[in-house]
Design a protein around this nucleic acid. Structure first.
Length: 115
DNA sequence: TTAATTTGACCCCC
DNA sequence: GGGGGTCAAATTAA
Protein backbone atom coordinates (compact mmCIF):
# COMPACT_ATOMS: atom_id res chain seq x y z
CA UNK A 1 0.00 0.00 0.00
CA UNK A 2 2.88 2.33 0.74
CA UNK A 3 4.34 1.70 -2.70
CA UNK A 4 0.95 2.28 -4.22
CA UNK A 5 0.57 5.62 -2.48
CA UNK A 6 3.98 6.71 -3.68
CA UNK A 7 3.08 5.63 -7.15
CA UNK A 8 -0.04 7.76 -7.12
CA UNK A 9 1.82 10.77 -5.76
CA UNK A 10 4.53 10.43 -8.38
CA UNK A 11 2.09 10.28 -11.24
CA UNK A 12 0.29 13.33 -9.86
CA UNK A 13 3.49 15.35 -9.83
CA UNK A 14 4.07 14.60 -13.46
CA UNK A 15 0.82 16.17 -14.42
CA UNK A 16 0.15 19.14 -12.22
CA UNK A 17 -2.84 18.79 -9.97
CA UNK A 18 -4.53 16.18 -12.06
CA UNK A 19 -4.44 12.62 -10.93
CA UNK A 20 -3.31 10.15 -13.50
CA UNK A 21 -4.10 6.49 -13.41
CA UNK A 22 -1.50 4.11 -12.19
CA UNK A 23 -1.22 0.78 -13.84
CA UNK A 24 -0.19 -0.77 -10.60
CA UNK A 25 -2.77 -3.45 -10.05
CA UNK A 26 -1.01 -5.06 -7.15
CA UNK A 27 -3.24 -3.40 -4.61
CA UNK A 28 -6.88 -4.14 -4.36
CA UNK A 29 -9.39 -1.91 -2.69
CA UNK A 30 -12.08 -3.02 -0.28
CA UNK A 31 -13.78 -6.00 -1.82
CA UNK A 32 -16.56 -5.62 0.64
CA UNK A 33 -20.13 -6.77 0.60
CA UNK A 34 -22.26 -5.69 -2.31
CA UNK A 35 -25.14 -7.23 -4.12
CA UNK A 36 -23.82 -9.89 -6.46
CA UNK A 37 -26.45 -9.17 -9.06
CA UNK A 38 -24.63 -5.91 -9.73
CA UNK A 39 -22.36 -7.97 -11.86
CA UNK A 40 -25.01 -9.92 -13.63
CA UNK A 41 -25.21 -12.96 -11.45
CA UNK A 42 -27.94 -15.33 -12.49
CA UNK A 43 -28.66 -16.98 -9.17
CA UNK A 44 -29.66 -14.93 -6.15
CA UNK A 45 -28.03 -17.39 -3.82
CA UNK A 46 -25.10 -16.07 -1.85
CA UNK A 47 -24.93 -19.00 0.49
CA UNK A 48 -23.30 -21.53 -1.77
CA UNK A 49 -19.88 -22.61 -0.71
CA UNK A 50 -18.49 -21.38 -3.99
CA UNK A 51 -19.70 -17.85 -3.52
CA UNK A 52 -18.72 -17.53 0.11
CA UNK A 53 -15.35 -19.07 -0.51
CA UNK A 54 -14.48 -16.66 -3.27
CA UNK A 55 -16.02 -13.63 -1.62
CA UNK A 56 -16.62 -12.01 -4.95
CA UNK A 57 -19.26 -9.53 -3.89
CA UNK A 58 -17.61 -6.21 -4.39
CA UNK A 59 -18.30 -2.53 -4.51
CA UNK A 60 -15.09 -0.97 -5.61
CA UNK A 61 -12.85 -2.63 -8.11
CA UNK A 62 -9.18 -2.35 -8.72
CA UNK A 63 -7.78 0.97 -7.52
CA UNK A 64 -6.31 2.47 -10.68
CA UNK A 65 -5.87 5.97 -9.32
CA UNK A 66 -9.26 7.26 -10.37
CA UNK A 67 -12.46 7.59 -8.40
CA UNK A 68 -15.26 6.01 -10.40
CA UNK A 69 -18.97 6.67 -10.16
CA UNK A 70 -21.44 4.24 -11.62
CA UNK A 71 -23.93 5.68 -14.10
CA UNK A 72 -25.41 2.70 -15.87
CA UNK A 73 -25.83 -1.02 -16.17
CA UNK A 74 -26.92 -2.96 -19.23
CA UNK A 75 -27.71 -6.48 -20.27
CA UNK A 76 -25.35 -7.41 -23.08
CA UNK A 77 -26.42 -9.75 -25.82
CA UNK A 78 -24.66 -13.11 -25.84
CA UNK A 79 -23.24 -12.50 -22.41
CA UNK A 80 -24.33 -14.15 -19.22
CA UNK A 81 -23.53 -11.06 -17.23
CA UNK A 82 -24.46 -7.43 -17.22
CA UNK A 83 -22.03 -4.66 -18.09
CA UNK A 84 -21.51 -1.83 -15.64
CA UNK A 85 -20.69 1.72 -16.70
CA UNK A 86 -18.59 4.13 -14.69
CA UNK A 87 -17.39 7.66 -15.18
CA UNK A 88 -14.86 9.72 -13.32
CA UNK A 89 -16.27 11.05 -10.06
CA UNK A 90 -14.83 14.49 -10.83
CA UNK A 91 -16.03 14.63 -14.41
CA UNK A 92 -16.91 18.31 -14.15
CA UNK A 93 -14.60 19.53 -11.40
CA UNK A 94 -11.50 18.18 -13.10
CA UNK A 95 -12.68 17.89 -16.70
CA UNK A 96 -12.17 14.16 -16.48
CA UNK A 97 -13.82 12.61 -19.54
CA UNK A 98 -12.86 9.03 -18.82
CA UNK A 99 -15.45 6.30 -18.70
CA UNK A 100 -14.99 2.69 -17.84
CA UNK A 101 -16.86 -0.52 -18.53
CA UNK A 102 -16.73 -3.52 -16.25
CA UNK A 103 -18.26 -6.84 -17.17
CA UNK A 104 -17.95 -10.19 -15.50
CA UNK A 105 -17.01 -12.85 -18.00
CA UNK A 106 -16.37 -15.76 -15.69
CA UNK A 107 -17.65 -16.44 -12.18
CA UNK A 108 -15.51 -19.45 -11.45
CA UNK A 109 -12.29 -17.51 -11.17
CA UNK A 110 -13.88 -14.82 -11.01
CA UNK A 111 -12.88 -12.88 -14.05
CA UNK A 112 -13.86 -9.45 -15.35
CA UNK A 113 -13.27 -7.49 -18.48
CA UNK A 114 -12.50 -3.84 -17.77
CA UNK A 115 -12.43 -1.42 -20.67
C1' DT B 1 -28.78 16.90 3.84
C1' DT B 2 -25.51 15.78 0.41
C1' DA B 3 -23.58 12.40 -2.50
C1' DA B 4 -23.72 7.98 -4.80
C1' DT B 5 -26.36 4.24 -6.79
C1' DT B 6 -30.21 2.16 -9.12
C1' DT B 7 -32.87 1.61 -13.04
C1' DG B 8 -36.23 2.74 -16.72
C1' DA B 9 -36.15 6.03 -20.39
C1' DC B 10 -33.95 8.11 -23.99
C1' DC B 11 -30.69 8.60 -27.91
C1' DC B 12 -27.79 7.23 -31.68
C1' DC B 13 -26.30 4.18 -35.05
C1' DC B 14 -26.46 -0.02 -37.78
C1' DG C 1 -36.48 -2.09 -34.45
C1' DG C 2 -32.84 -3.58 -31.54
C1' DG C 3 -28.35 -3.16 -29.20
C1' DG C 4 -25.43 -0.57 -26.57
C1' DG C 5 -24.17 3.85 -24.30
C1' DT C 6 -25.86 7.69 -21.38
C1' DC C 7 -29.24 10.46 -18.71
C1' DA C 8 -31.76 11.54 -14.78
C1' DA C 9 -35.51 10.87 -11.33
C1' DA C 10 -36.10 8.02 -7.50
C1' DT C 11 -33.96 5.64 -4.05
C1' DT C 12 -30.35 4.55 -0.83
C1' DA C 13 -26.11 5.43 1.70
C1' DA C 14 -23.02 8.33 4.32
Amino acid sequence: MFDSTLSILRSSNLNGSHRTPTNDLRFINDWDAKKPEDFGERSKSTTTSLNTKIGWKKKSLIDDGYAWRKYGQKVILNSKYQRNYYRCSYKFEQRCQATKQVQMIDDELPKYKIT
